[in-house]
Amino acid sequence: MHTKITGSILVLFLLVSCKSDKKKEEPDTWRTKKAAVENATHNQLLDVEKEQGWELLFDGKTMDGWHLYNDPNADSVWEVVDGELHSNANDESLTAGDLVTDKAYTNYELSLEWKISGNGNSGVFINVQELPEVPTAWQTGPEYQILGADHMDYDVPEKRPGCLYVFLPQQNEVEVKQGDWNKTTIKQVDGKISFYLNGVLTAEQDFNSPEWKQMIAESRFSNYPEFGKTTEGKIALQYWYFETWFRNIKIREL
């Protein structure tokens, strides 16, 4: 009898001990994952990315390689804060405008992450022609739409995030992660573009096609003679009155 009781107590002790160890293990695992997210390295390239031809367009410290459209010496709304490229919408003394790359690109894959205020509106313009007689980047460059989930245009099909702005609705439906980071990928090869939002294909178009020329002719962009005419140009980040954050901006030429 004594032996049976002792055995039962031993089994019970082992079960309690295992459960206790499991309880301890789960928080440790959670903290490890949380720490990995918090300490993730941004604005740097992995060795494999370098081998694949990727180049950083933002080093997380400076705005080298970028300038304000048509105003390179301006004290602009764009700044670097905590490793993020930020549009400062709170200081009216700063010069507002879109941020454009120093270099022009033709065939490439662009990757970046962005976060935006709930009612914010931004975008990525491609094939931008920086010309003194053209006052804004959007008058030449088609736009990858970036939009906050609370913006009044969020449910307008041709203005949803990831769209080829005002021309095409989302090819596949996808929502933004409001208050969190979203990933944009833009590919252009011989004038054929593909847009992705958080890994989902959202738009495709051939900028050399008669269809594209007709789409422009039937839109308000027909009033801007330089719009959408080339398959080479600079890349611009749009400023539009509300805060937007960018990081991990990189490109590889194809």
Rank of each mutant, 00 (worst) to 15 (best):
Q188E: 13
E143S: 07
A35P: 04
K61Q: 06
L12S: 05
L10I: 11
E226H: 11
D91A: 11
A236S: 13
T202H: 01
V48W: 11
S194I: 05
K115C: 03
I249E: 07
P210N: 14
A35D: 09
S8V: 15
A217V: 11
E232Y: 09
E113H: 02
I251K: 07
L10G: 05
Y69D: 04
K61N: 08
L99G: 06
N70E: 11
E49A: 12
E133A: 13
T231V: 15
I235V: 14
R31P: 01
Y196T: 06
F246P: 07
P157K: 15
N90I: 03
Q52I: 01
V134Q: 03
I116K: 08
H67I: 14
L12R: 02
G228Q: 02
E55K: 01
L201K: 15
M1Y: 12
H86L: 01
D82P: 07
N90A: 05
W54H: 14
K115F: 01
T230G: 06
V81L: 08
Q205I: 07
E243P: 00
W245N: 03
G162A: 10
E175F: 12
N73W: 03
V174Y: 11
L112T: 05
E38M: 14
E226K: 11
L112R: 08
E204K: 04
W212E: 09
Y105R: 03
G233Q: 09
V48T: 14
S76Q: 07
G123D: 05
K24L: 13
L46W: 12
L201P: 13
F195K: 08
L68M: 03
R31D: 10
A89M: 01
T32G: 02
I216G: 04
G120L: 06
C163F: 00
I146Y: 07
K19P: 00
N121E: 05
I146R: 08
L45I: 10
P142D: 13
L168H: 14
L85E: 00
K177C: 00
T202A: 04
A137H: 12
A236N: 08
L10R: 12
E109T: 15
L85T: 02
R31C: 10
G120H: 04
V11F: 14
L68F: 10
Y154T: 14
V134L: 04
G233V: 03
A104M: 05
A149E: 05
L14Y: 05
G123C: 03
K183A: 06
L131W: 09
T62Y: 08
N121Q: 05
P142A: 12
W240R: 07
I5R: 00
E26C: 06
E232S: 12
T185K: 10
F207L: 15
T185C: 08
E158P: 05
Y69Q: 02
M63T: 13
V128W: 04
N182D: 07
A104Y: 00
G60D: 10
E173Q: 06
Q139M: 10
S194R: 12
K24W: 14
S111R: 02
N198H: 00
S87P: 08
L57K: 11
M152R: 14
T202Y: 09
K61C: 06
L168E: 11
Y224R: 02
E243F: 03
I235Y: 08
E175N: 13
